[in-house]
């Protein structure tokens, strides 16, 4: 998988760099032009033409963020019951110095990552099995369809009763959230693999195992990654709610406690941190997605 990323980068060069030779080799101007234009218009890509739009977007993003904070600040100074941004920062520093913030972040991240990783790790093979074998599909599908309609949090009371109030019940609920999001997506990826690609591999002499590893897996990777991103969002959302109900530490827990004491600054610290951590994890997955699925044609 890691191979693909380097390959992709190398391959950008020869195409744009040898436009003239391409015309000669091919004897047709059109081919060289389409070859260069094929992947146009993706904002994440660094392309000579897209550079301007990219910087413009970044500037606008910065303006928007600063503006938003300014509005918040103004509202706080004008009678709304909000802490000002410096008060929130101060609170965060204070919590950090007391060692509380680190503990909360670690507790929350640990739960999310455990649930999310276990959920994805289980979802991918199950999704593949369902897509590949009718028997597996017949057996798993009703349960997945059923649990999909239940918000994972609605299972929390049951899980709490059955598993007590330790770490396990929270991880189980997060696991379910991540698993359900990812399993459907993986399954869809497997069933939508282009038949011609499978036939092409077969006529080249590939047997079922090879077809699975070399065609089905790479072809479904984009679906799996999308499923993982959705699963991560779902896991993160479930986490905070799970912590609100029962936890020793964690960002959700901290906010719940602050609510009792009317401590708005701590609640803000919690909200901002949850947002930032979620965003960072999402960006990491997006980065992996760009690296692993850059081969896709976009029209």
């Amino acid at each position: 998988m890691a191979r693909m990323s380097t390959m992709e980068q190398q391959s950008q060069q020869p195409v744009t760099g040898t436009e003239d030779t391409a015309v000669v080799v091919d004897g047709m101007r059109t081919s060289a032009i389409t070859a260069v234009d094929d992947d146009g218009g993706r904002p994440r890509r660094r392309r000579s033409g897209g550079m301007g739009t990219r910087t413009k977007l970044l500037i606008l993003n910065a303006v928007s963020i600063i503006g938003g904070i300014a509005i918040w600040w103004l509202l706080a100074l004008n009678g709304f019951q909000l802490p000002t941004p410096p008060e929130v920062v101060e609170k965060a520093v204070q919590l950090w110095n007391a060692g509380i913030l680190q503990e909360d972040i670690l507790a929350s991240l640990g739960r999310v990552l455990a649930g999310f990783l276990l959920g994805s790790a289980a979802a991918i093979p199950v999704g593949f099995l369902m897509g590949w074998y009718t028997v597996a599909r017949g057996l798993f599908e009703p349960w997945i369809q059923f649990f999909r309609t239940i918000p994972p949090l609605a299972l929390l009371p049951l899980v709490l009763v059955l598993l007590g109030i330790g770490e396990i019940p929270k991880i189980v609920v997060i696991f379910l959230a991540a698993f359900l999001a990812c399993v459907i997506s993986t399954y869809q990826g497997v069933v939508s693999v282009d038949r011609t690609l499978i036939n092409a591999a077969r006529v080249l002499g590939a047997k079922d195992g090879t077809i699975f590893a070399r065609v089905v897996v790479p072809a479904s990777t984009p679906f799996i990654l999308v499923g993982m991103r959705v699963g991560l969002g779902s896991a993160w959302a479930t986490l905070v709610a799970a912590e609100l109900l029962a936890a020793q530490a964690g960002l959700g827990r901290r906010m719940q406690e602050a609510q009792i004491y009317y401590d708005l600054a701590t609640i803000f610290v919690g909200i901002v941190l949850i947002g930032i951590l979620g965003l960072v994890m999402d960006r990491l997955l997006l980065f992996a997605e760009t690296k692993l699925t850059g081969w896709q044609e976009r029209r």
Binding site: E8, S31, T34, A35
Partner: peptide, 17 residues
């Protein structure tokens, strides 16, 4: 006649290529 494109991905090729 695809030497120049040996390391290119299919998405960068024209239909004929």
């Amino acid at each position: 006649g695809l030497q120049q494109f040996a390391d290119a991905l299919p998405k960068m090729l024209s239909g004929g290529m």
